[in-house]
Amino acid sequence: MSETQHSYIANKSKDDYLKRLRRIEGQARGLQRMVDEDQYCIDILTQVSAMTKALQAVSLSLLDEHIGHCVVEAVKAGGPEADAKLKEASDAIARLVKS
């Protein structure tokens, strides 16, 4: 599977991701409104934390799907594609851990 093909995300999963991302988008708008209205800093930080956790949940779910499909398929096929997919997944995990 090429990098430009992403059909491994099932329609149900895609709909779930979009729903979750729209909710996060709403949280971001809420944060902007809270800052604009000079709300209490701790309340804003609480909402930032909730939004961060929601983004992390989406990230982990996407990573799980990637490993469960793309990486597994590449490893089954073997060759340099397997090494590339494993490195790609490892790099993605490193980025998530740093954030």
Rank of each mutant, 00 (worst) to 15 (best):
E3L: 13
T4I: 15
Q5R: 14
S7Y: 11
S7C: 13
Y8F: 11
Y8D: 08
Y8A: 06
Y8G: 05
I9E: 03
I9P: 05
A10H: 06
A10F: 06
S13M: 10
S13E: 10
S13I: 10
K14I: 12
K14E: 11
K14G: 09
D15N: 11
D15C: 08
D16T: 14
Y17K: 05
L18W: 07
L18M: 07
L18F: 08
R20S: 03
R20L: 03
L21T: 05
R22I: 11
R23K: 15
R23V: 15
R23N: 13
I24K: 01
I24W: 03
E25P: 02
G26D: 07
Q27A: 02
Q27S: 02
A28Y: 11
G30W: 04
L31S: 02
L31K: 02
L31R: 02
Q32G: 15
Q32D: 13
V35M: 04
E37L: 09
E37A: 08
D38Y: 09
D38I: 11
Y40M: 01
C41I: 02
C41F: 03
I42E: 14
D43N: 04
D43E: 06
D43F: 05
I44G: 00
I44E: 00
T46A: 10
T46Q: 09
T46Y: 08
V48I: 14
V48P: 07
V48F: 10
A50V: 01
M51V: 02
T52E: 15
T52K: 15
T52V: 15
T52I: 13
K53Q: 12
K53Y: 14
K53F: 14
A54K: 01
L55G: 03
Q56K: 09
A57V: 06
A57I: 06
A57N: 06
S59M: 09
S59T: 07
S59Q: 10
L60H: 14
L60N: 15
S61H: 11
S61D: 12
L62G: 01
L62Y: 00
L63P: 01
D64F: 07
E65T: 10
H66R: 03
I67H: 01
I67R: 00
G68F: 01
G68E: 00
H69E: 12
H69T: 13
C70L: 06
C70Q: 04
C70E: 03
V71A: 00
V71S: 00
V71E: 00
V72F: 04
V72G: 02
E73V: 12
A74L: 06
A74V: 06
V75M: 03
V75A: 01
V75R: 04
K76E: 13
A77L: 08
A77G: 05
G79H: 00
G79D: 00
P80D: 14
P80T: 15
E81Q: 07
A82H: 00
D83E: 10
D83Q: 10
A84C: 08
A84I: 11
A84E: 08
K85V: 11
L86N: 05
E88T: 14
S90F: 11
S90D: 09
S90W: 09
D91H: 04
A92K: 03
I93S: 02
I93F: 03
L96S: 00
V97G: 08
